[in-house]
Amino acid sequence: MTGTSLVVTDLCVEFSGFVAVGGVSFDAHPGEVRFLIGPNGAGKTTCIDAITGLVKGTGSAKLGEKELLGRQVHRIVRLGVGRTFQTASVFDELTVLQNLDIAAGRHRSSTSLLRSRRGTDPSIELALEETGLTGELATPAGILSHGQKQWLEIAMLLVQDAKVLLLDEPVAGMSQDERTATGELLQRIAAKRIVVVVEHDMDFMRRYATRVTVLHQGRVLSQGTVAEVQADPRVQEVYLGTADAMTEG
């Protein structure tokens, strides 16, 4: 199934007259880390919201042959589309293991839901290892550090066996080391899955992006490799205030 791609065509989202996303098209494939960047309010989060069914969108977002738009949130998830949120959202009262267990649970039968957990799923152990959270198994998610919470969210997507990971600002608020760890994690994950990352951090983008889509005011401003995008004068104009960040080092 490595061939399955996420293809978004002419996606539009309107909030009572205000066009937040006006005809965005991009595609993402396994094996690449796809970045979605743009200034505040560009419509990045709204794109993800529309693809995951949180807000209504028109146009098309296809995973392989399957149209995502118009389905209910949990059905889209069951097709293999997972996401994280700008604000880390894990179940604070539950432990790391319980969080992951719930994420892994949608494949279970309803009778097994009524039993208590015995042992740990292999997929959970794998995800814990991948994200370096093995030591935190019994920690309540609420007291994890900010970075760990983001990793837990990613781990939840892994045990959920998501084919598409849509990550909304996963490294916001992380230390430099944590960013590096996250970037490498994303590259490992991307080998077999579709990874789309929304980010503001240009440095992070430069280091880990395979391809980049720049959004501005709900439209695609530029698209291509990091170098191509950086060279685009329109992008530089939009990022005038942050032009240094675009070109520097």
Partner: peptide
């Protein structure tokens, strides 16, 4: 039994963050 089951955990999760549960593929 319900409280210690996986369903019990799922119920608490739903109580605390219904939308998040939706994004794990549950209704």
């Amino acid at each position: 039994q319900l409280y210690r089951s996986r369903f019990g955990e799922l119920l608490v999760a739903t109580r605390d963050a219904e939308e998040r549960v939706r994004f794990l593929g549950y209704d």
